[in-house]
Every structure is written in C-alpha cells, then in structure tokens.
Design a protein around this nucleic acid. Structure first.
Lengths: 137, 137
DNA sequence: ATTATATTGAGAAAGATTCGCATTTGTATC
DNA sequence: GATACAAATGCGAATCTTTCTCAATATAAT
C-alpha cells in the first residue's frame, strides 16, 4: 500500500494523492506533464481535477517524491524520484528522454560552484540531440 | 549603426528590430525576459508592441543573434550572443546569473552523446546555488 | 515616387498554471 | 463507530506567458 509512502512524506493519504502516486510508480514512462497525469486519471476513470493534479504534483515535489524539470518545452515535466540523481539527454525530433550520470561532470560542477563562491543547491544538465532512431528517418 | 548587424543576419532593418537590438547591446544586464525588453521599450518612449517584442526575439534567436534560456522560472530568458558559448550559475535567492565555461564538461558531454548514439545539437547546464552576497544575509 | 511584400500593433486567443470558495474527505476524538 | 475540525478537492474563474489574426504601415526594390 502506498499510503505509507505518503504518510512518511508528511502528506495526508487522500484518494487523489494515492491515485497519482500509484500511477507514477506503475507507469513505464518516467517523464510526464501535469496534463499527461490528468489524462491518465481520466482514462482510468478516476475522478481527479486538473487543479488537484497540479497541487499534488507540487506537493510531491516539495516532499521530495518527484522532481520537476524545465526542458525546452512550454510546460513542466515531472519525474518520480527513485533515489539516484541523473541528468538527461533529449531527442529534439521525437521527444524521447534518456538518462545518464557522469561522475566527472558532477565533480566539476561542484568545483565550479566553489570557485565562484556559490553554495550549490541543485543543477540541471540537458543535452539536446537526435537519437539513433531518428537519425535513420 | 546596427542595421548592418540585422542585414547580415538576414533580417530587414526595421525600427522595432533596431531598437531592440540596440537595447540588448547597450544593456549591462545580459539576461532578460520578453517582458523586460518590452518595459525597457516603454520607458525609453519607444513604441513597440509586446507581440512584436516576442516576434523579434524569436527571429533573433533563429538568426543566431540571441539565445533563449529556460531557467527554472515560468518564462523564457534571452541573452545576446557574444560569440563564446558558456553555461550558467544562478543564485536561487537574488536571481543573479553568472557565467562559466568548462572544457572538461564540454568534452564529456560530447562523449556521452556519442556513447548513447545521439547527434548532439545543443546543451544546457545550469547550476543553482546561493551566491556569495546572499550567503551573508 | 510607386509598388509589392514583409512587418507591426492591438486585441483576441491559446496554453499552462494558480486561485477562490463552497463542498467533501481524512483523521483524531469520544 | 459516530462526531468534529482542519485539510484537501473540484470547479470555474483568474492569471501569466506566449502566439495568432488581421487591418494598417513601413521597407526595399523598381
């Protein structure tokens, strides 16, 4: 049962929150817009308002359950946190999102922040390109 | 005269474009939203519509005169291109934007793209943190 | 100067997100 | 398990950013 996850995140275990969290955990697609989540709720017959989807996703973000990304699109994209940090490589043709981590880049970023006197809180690295599939089309 | 810049960018030298380009070139602030540019036009008594500001900035982007950034804010930020590529480090408290380049990171990104089979077209790296000034406040 | 075409301004429209508020739900209490 | 109270929800309105429409205007070529 997911209500444990919500409770431990400091959130009341309400039906909309449970439905959304369950959906995020079970979906094979890991990067979704609020609209995507809303549509998925509709399709599963779950009655959750769009405003609630936005509210819940924002609460999940504050609680550390999801991460909000701002790729070069006009809307936010949410991703369930599975522990390990990673960056993204995104196909500009089909929109596919892949992930990667690079220890060298991670370290350099901390050095750069330190050199400039910043206390680093977060970072976002997105590589844009054409994926293998789209190169043959 | 800036009309040369516009002509060589393949753009007709119209008054709004000249005014906006001149403003971008003369402003000490390098990262601005469309709204910022629009307000600046109003303040200098220049009569340029908001829709035109958006259109012109988008054209400038296509022409390679400016770069559009999507930081973790709800709007695009534009920056006049001065030749050299660079990444950004942004203060989450005061919103200040600093720049940096790191050859190691640049190279790693190309390696990562290649390893995943992508043809890299662009990339965006933003480090978020607290700047030196804001740490003492 | 004249013409054909691209550009502009203003407001409407669209897309994403948030807000306000009456109603409902979850949870602690009895 | 019923009750009460705060928190959460749904809906539509409101807001914000950005784009679109189209008549009026400015630009570049003739």
């Amino acid at each position: 049962m997911d209500s444990k996850d919500l409770k431990s995140a400091g959130l009341k275990a309400t039906l909309p929150r449970l439905k959304i969290l369950t959906f995020l955990q079970s979906s094979p697609v890991r990067h979704m817009s609020a609209e995507d989540v809303y549509k998925a709720m509709l399709e599963s017959g779950e009655d959750v308002g769009l405003a609630t989807v936005y509210r819940v996703l924002t609460q999940f973000e504050s609680a550390g359950l999801v991460t909000r990304h701002h790729f070069d699109e006009g809307h936010s994209v949410f991703e369930l946190n599975l522990g390990e940090h990673h960056d993204h490589i995104l196909c500009v043709k089909c929109g596919k999102v892949d992930e990667f981590t690079d220890q060298v880049i991670e370290e350099r970023q901390h050095e750069i922040a330190k050199k400039q006197g910043y206390t680093i809180t977060d970072h976002a690295l997105v590589i844009y390109g054409v994926c293998p599939d789209c190169q043959n089309a």
